[in-house]
Structures are given as structure tokens and as C-alpha cells.
Design a protein around this nucleic acid. Sequence first.
DNA 1: CGCTGTGAAAACCTTCACAGCC
DNA 2: GGCTGTGAAGGTTTTCACAGCG
Lengths: 208, 208
Amino acid sequence: MPRATVDRLPRYLRALDSLEAQGVVTTSSETLAAVAGVGSAQLRKDLSFLGSHGRRGVGYDVSHLRGRIAAALGVTSRQRVVIVGIGNLGHALANYSGFGERGFSVVGLVDVDPAVVGSSVSGMVVRHLDELEGLVDELGATIAVLAVPSSAAQRVCDRVVAAGVGGVLSFSSRELAVPTGVDLRTVDVGAELQILAFHGRRRQSTGA
Amino acid sequence: MPRATVDRLPRYLRALDSLEAQGVVTTSSETLAAVAGVGSAQLRKDLSFLGSHGRRGVGYDVSHLRGRIAAALGVTSRQRVVIVGIGNLGHALANYSGFGERGFSVVGLVDVDPAVVGSSVSGMVVRHLDELEGLVDELGATIAVLAVPSSAAQRVCDRVVAAGVGGVLSFSSRELAVPTGVDLRTVDVGAELQILAFHGRRRQSTGA
DNA sequence: CGCTGTGAAAACCTTCACAGCC
DNA sequence: GGCTGTGAAGGTTTTCACAGCG
């Protein structure tokens, strides 16, 4: 399955949720694509990698297709997530209530700051980084979210990987190295802004 | 300039910052690419779109190249950013101190919640959404960051666009529509986790 | 000789357009 | 007739490999 297709599956899942919430039972590639913000040909091609789940002349069963995509993504049972770094951002992520409906449970919070360790955030006690390995194992966490300072990111990343998580989502702008077999994704807000700035610059010099 | 290249420029900028901080004056495509986490051929191709700034047989002048990329991105003078939605995430973003070194100043905070409007966050008073248009104009903001609930995202987006910003960074998972000429980027943390879950699933069934 | 800059080749992804089934 | 599923065409991005300059 092409990487680009995988990257779009979450959009399709959300679009289907949205249609389902509106009581739509059956939909067409045209409609679903419009909701997801892609072209209909692209949608059909992407879905074809999951097998044949539509009916010609009719369309797709919203609920069934939703199930197929959720299964492909592996979010039929809640994936367990540990958040490391309970600063401003870690706090915000821990309190974010939207993870549940996307298929995730935040099961552990970890930090090193003595002022934070032991305190309660979003109904959970923050544990010390030293307890990380035990926590990951005991809680069955498969994904770690890193919201730590850039200077600590690689060190902490090495620890969560050694502890056994298979996926890491980093909010650090630092380039991180992970062993093969572990999946890493990075959200760099500064980089996103810089890309916007590039296009803003274009707009300006094109004269508007 | 290819879209894919633009998306990588921020990485190169950060890599150059990192080298410069270590006192490196001249570097090769090989070294810089390693720091940025890309292939050296890709780096050279990307840089070639900015013109010819290296010296054959020698390499690139770190400081000079940094300047060229910053200019291309339009971050030589600080871009002004307004954050809309001062909940958990908006708070975290407002307090994040790293924007300065990436070329941005947060110049305004906006919300609608009476409990938040008028309070002080990160040394700034939160203004009401009704004042948005005036603020954007008065402060010269070119980019808006949306950290609002999904249900309000499109409405708020329309307002910031009407107020005159040219770039929008949304943290909502909702698909947003913007007029042509306005640039939109979306950071969807739930989607990132789902993509990680997909790969985790693969790993599991491949047998580890 | 070393390293950049770049055409050309290969890989990847998207879009088209229609055959095939409902 | 309508809409999916998909080969084929078209476009973009990456990689290769080397000419060209210092």
C-alpha cells in the first residue's frame, strides 16, 4: 500500500464519521471525496488497495467502509499512548479529549521535573521518567508522544524505543534517529509556519 | 520551485543553525544532508532551485546559505502571527518561546470565552474575536493559527481570511475551505497517531 | 582531486477514461 | 443508467551518475 494512500486514510475515516453522524447510510466516491477534500478518482484508487468494498451503480456502505478503514489503520481496539514531557504542550495534549474518538487512550504521563512529577493532570498522576520502562510494559503502550525540549528529545526518544514502543510522535524540531522497525513522525509547528511564510512571500511579490 | 522542496527548506534552515551553533563555517552536501536527515543528491537538487551558492571542490558557506534559505522562506524579518483560540493548545502555543528563533512573533491572542478574554497569557491580554479584524490590520499580522474547537473552525477560518491574513495554520481535524490565494496547512495530531498505528499494525502482523 | 550542479533515468503518485458490474 | 475498480497516461519527485569548475 502506497505511503501517500496511508497518509490519507485518516481523512477518509473522519469523513465517514461525519457522514455517519448525519445519518447517511450509503455514499458515492464523488460525495465522500468532496467531504474528505480530495478528487474522486484518487479516493477510489486509494480504497482499491483495501479491496473491493463498494457496489457498482450504488456506492459504498458508510458503516462497513468505516470499519474496513479502521481495521486497516489498526484502531479497532484502542491503542495505548504515553505522553512524555508534561510542559505546556504535554499538558494540552493530556487534556485533549478528542483522542478517544480517533482510537487512542492516553494511559500514562511522564516527566522529569520534580515540580510536575506526582501532580495530577487530566485525572492521572505524572510519573518520573525513571519509571518509563515499567510503565510502557505494564500499561501495554504502543505509541509514545514526545513533548520534551529539543535538547532532550534524542535521549528521551532512545529511552521510549528501548522501553518497547513501536511508534513515536515527536513535537521537537530536532531531527531524531530511530532504529529500523520503529516508526517516527514529527510535527514541527515552526516548520509549518515557515512554509506558510514562503507562500505568503510569493503572494506578496506576485503583487496582491 | 517544487512543493516538496519548499517543504524541506525549514529542515535545511534548522540543520544550518545547528552547524553554525557548533562553529562550523563551511560544510558539504554530504554533511549537511546527514544533519538534515535527507540524501545528499536530494539536498543538492533542492538547493539548486535557490541558485548556485556552493563552491565546487569546497562546499557551502554555512552562514551565507542560511541567509539564502531564510530569504527564500521570507523569515528574514519577523512574520507576525495571531493565535485564535486560547484553550489548552492555544495557551501552550502562546507560551512556546521557540517561535522567535524560527522567524515569528506572536502579536495577538483572541478567544470568545468571557472567562478567558481580558486575561493575560504570556504577557499579552487576550482580546475578543469581535476585535479580530481591527487587530489583524493594526498589528500587521500575516498568519493566523487556529486552535479552536472543530465545530467553530470553519467559521473562525472565514473570519481570519476576511480580516486579511494570507496563511492559516489549523489544528482542527475538520477539513477547511479557503479561497484561492490564501494558504492553509493543517496539523492533525489524531491523524498522525493513526498513521503510526497503521505501521504498528503492520509490524505486529509481520511478526515481532 | 573533490565537490557542486544538473541532465537523464527510475520510482512514485495522480488523473484520466472506460470496461465491467449492479 | 450509474458508479466502482483499474489499466494506461501524465505529472511529479527522487535517485543516479557524471560533466564542469575550483
